[in-house]
């Protein structure tokens, strides 16, 4: 069995506009792949396809050697939770009704973990990403973007995913938060042998953290 998250010949159209044209991308366990491209080149769409959230119009995604049929709820929860995604805007990616503690514990609660165990794990992860306990009782509107993105990272790691996709996840954050989150991701990757995809238009960030960088030209096919 090959431990990798692979996109095979992915094609995506939005209203007849071709966004991705037969794109191949492979994220092996333990490696950090950078994905670069101008805005509109389909970086986020490719990340959503790999996160099993968007059904491509052509091609397929394979997870650890297994070709996946369907996306979202067509896949069992155990498969979906193998791949985690971190979005650019933590505000849009969090349910405003939940406290940060509930937010981090939610994926565990959703898959049947008892309340106390889920809470304990949420506290542990909050500590890992640098959230103080007093922040956990707050709701998203009462914390900063950086604090909220930390909570999102904690939530993404809660199921110990094999692959973590970061879609411009640090673009809105200050340099120190950015560095801290990157360190958390690197540590997690080292411990669990996870594959990481960094989507960014920031070349410096990618050369610093990624083991290799793939270029995605506008509407075309990737090189690199």
């Amino acid at each position: 069995m090959t431990s990798a998250l692979v996109a095979h010949q992915i094609t995506v159209h939005y209203d007849r506009q071709r966004v991705l044209d037969r794109v191949d991308l492979r994220i092996a366990a333990g490696e950090t792949v950078g994905l670069r491209g101008p805005s509109g080149s389909g970086k986020s769409t490719l990340a959503r396809v790999l996160a099993l959230l968007h059904a491509p119009d052509g091609g397929h995604v394979a997870l650890d050697g297994q070709r996946l049929a369907g996306v979202r709820h067509r896949l069992p929860a155990a498969v979906r939770t193998r791949v985690a995604i971190l979005f650019q805007s933590p505000r849009a990616a969090t349910d405003p009704r939940l406290t940060l503690a509930e937010l981090i514990a939610e994926p565990l609660r959703a898959t049947g973990t008892p309340r106390e165990a889920a809470r304990a794990r949420a506290r542990e992860l909050a500590d890992l990403v640098g959230l103080t306990p007093d922040l956990l009782a707050r709701r998203p509107h009462a914390v900063s973007d950086g604090q909220l993105q930390r909570a999102c990272l904690a939530r993404a790691l809660v199921h110990r995913p094999g692959y973590l996709l970061c879609d411009e996840a640090t673009a809105m954050l200050d340099a120190s938060t950015q560095a801290h989150l990157a360190a958390v991701v690197t540590d997690y990757q080292r411990q669990h042998g996870a594959g990481v995809l960094l989507v960014s238009h920031d070349a410096a960030l990618l050369t610093r953290w990624a083991t290799r960088v793939v270029e995605l030209p506008a509407g075309g096919r990737p090189t690199g």
Partner: peptide, 17 residues
């Protein structure tokens, strides 16, 4: 279509949840 629903789906939440 909001990202927080995507996050819930990716986190393993069922349709009902």
């Amino acid at each position: 279509t909001r990202p927080f629903v995507d996050a819930a789906v990716a986190g393993g939440a069922s349709r009902t949840r």
